[in-house]
Design a protein around this nucleic acid. Sequence first.
DNA 1: GAAGACAGGGATAAGCGCGA
DNA 2: TCGCGCTTATCCCTGTCTTC
Length: 372
Amino acid sequence: MLEDRTTASPTAPTVPSATPATHATPAPTAATAPGSETPWPTAYPSGYAVVDVETTGLSRDDRIISAAVYRLDARGEVEDHWYTLVNPQRDPGPVWIHGLTSDKLADAPLFADIAEEFATRLADRVLVAHNAVFDWSMIAREYARAERTAPVRQRLCTIALSKELGLPLPNHKLESLAAHFGVVQRQAHHALDDARVLAEAFRPSLRAAASDGVRLPLLECRPLTEWSDGGARIGRQGGPATGSSTSSFSAYSSYQSGSWRPSRKRPACPFPNPGRWEDGKPLKQGMRVAFSGDTSVDRELLEDRAFEAGLHIATSVSRLTSLLVTNDPDSGTSKTTKARAYGTPVIDEAAFGQLLQDVAPAETPAGTPGER
DNA sequence: GAAGACAGGGATAAGCGCGA
DNA sequence: TCGCGCTTATCCCTGTCTTC
């Protein structure tokens, strides 16, 4: 259904009028898949689900009101697409943006009603979205409300991919990415058209990445239930092996139970800094850990887990920083740049998660077991 | 217009070493 | 002990960027 940007587009998709009914349309089969002669990295995913959702707002308690999915094969060719409205059971939010009024959504299915079909569209594919952390968060929360789990294990943000490719964009808005690849937006902020535009822009991006040998910025997606339970799980296991039950730790642990919490200050780490982390060795309590860039687990929860394990959360990198955690060490952020300058060890989120499971106790002076 | 996340930069505080 | 200078961490504000 996607137009080939190299040709006229008499078959360009018609953005459907808002209708409560969901629909799925198989894509025409390409006689010769363009780019099929290109050697393809074997490590690349076998399929993608390009997703766009419209929501009642941007907050954690906002709801999805429409969703669209373009399923693509390994090389970015469209297999089919799907679109649905969703009744959010509340006011639709910024109608002047998405145009979906309460009347239009009144007869739409609830998210729980479309969760199964949505899951079918997402299953066993990498979720692709523009500013993917936003779409993924919304989707994950909807599934959590429906007491289900979204069948998504990895996501790919097209903003991150365009940065990896070094595309000469004036900014990283979807419209700029579309314009770069000559993709015409017909109805911005309509989930189906935005997903179509993104799918069209993603295909050449994917091919460019494949031909240039660029790694794809894939991030792990964890169900909301795991996000909520993770920090507490570490605490229940005893977390820091010794001396971890300081008053601040206890107060903090009890405070952080539950799924979503407001932002707040974290108590100071009670352990001295044992120095830098060394490859092949465990983390030690008191190590100063800094984070940079997007993470698959909610950043605050990731920091909570580190704190509960007895690590110090640093907001910047210095010579004393024990470790920098980032999924994109080549991102060029101030933290990664400083870490490189200081020779600070850098690991990715997955490796950090492994290390968190076995944090060595702090080396406290004799007779002063980590109490404050 | 609002929300959220991130980064950068300036101001400030704290820690440390050194010398008087 | 005190003052000084340096380094580092932290806080706060601002700007950027995305989304709706």
